[in-house]
Amino acid sequence: MIFIILQIIFLISLAPLVSGIITKIKNNLRLRRGQSVWQPYYNLAKLFSKDEVCSEHSSWVFKITPFIVFASSLLALFLVPAFIAKSPAQYLGDLLLLVFIFSLGRFFLALAGLDTGSSFGGMGSSREMFISSFAEPAIVMAFFAVSFNFGTTNLAATCGPGALKFSSLIAGIALLIVTLAETSRIPIDNQETHLELTMIHEAMALEYSGPSLALIELASYLKQIVFFTLISATVYPVVFCAQITPIQALTGIIIYLAKISFIAVLIAFTEVFLAKMRLFRAVDFLYFSFVLALLALIAATLGA
């Protein structure tokens, strides 16, 4: 139990750093010095200490949304196995529950986008729902493929004696593509620009400021680390599941950090070397991830 709480606290504090690292790598690849990897923490601290401006056209939906988005991301964090897989969250739900939890946060964020009455928000909501609708089948298919290897959608499916299977690898790649969409990364969306016409996620949150914006940003860091953790657990399952000693926990943490950094590097390279796609090309991109996930499933049924 104590390990679990430590794990969640550790993941929350790690989440902004992952974004910081990705930005740093991207900047270095472009031969720039770039901001410090700790910048996301400074940003959060700054935003939490600021006053807030709230649109006069908006309603209570706009006000409660940051909390719901944050709560749903944090709940997802309860579910993923990072370096210890045995968790009380096992009795809470399974892999498929993750899909529904994220859709809770997204639903409210999209409503908040519409609530302020500006066209940017509406545009963001519409596009976000559009992209995520097409991402969902791929996620479910990938989860199926992973779970097939273990015969259950229980979270234990992502934990076990290192099952480096072909199907898990393909499913992991499919999930990686979905992650690009879900964490608003380059071929689908762009976190860096605030040009209204290209942004999806940023457009929805455009009217937020101060602590509310901080919560939404923190929620998206959490969502990102949840997806990274999932991919890492899919491709290379968590090693220690049963009763663990502190030494094992430490080893688990080191392995976990290595996996996460690898994914972060991968994402940074993708972002630098790919151009942003037109909105409707993104659908094809997500179809591709669906096909990959289907392939993973077929491989899993064959036992590969």
Binding site: S59, A110, F134
Partner: peptide
């Protein structure tokens, strides 16, 4: 997975239904 697609589209539809009707 098609059911998941349906779920995603249904959520989009109700963002529209609620958002356009009641918000802004």
């Amino acid at each position: 997975s098609l059911l998941a697609l349906t779920g995603g589209l249904a959520a989009s539809c109700f963002v529209k239904a609620f958002g356009i009707t009641f918000l802004a």
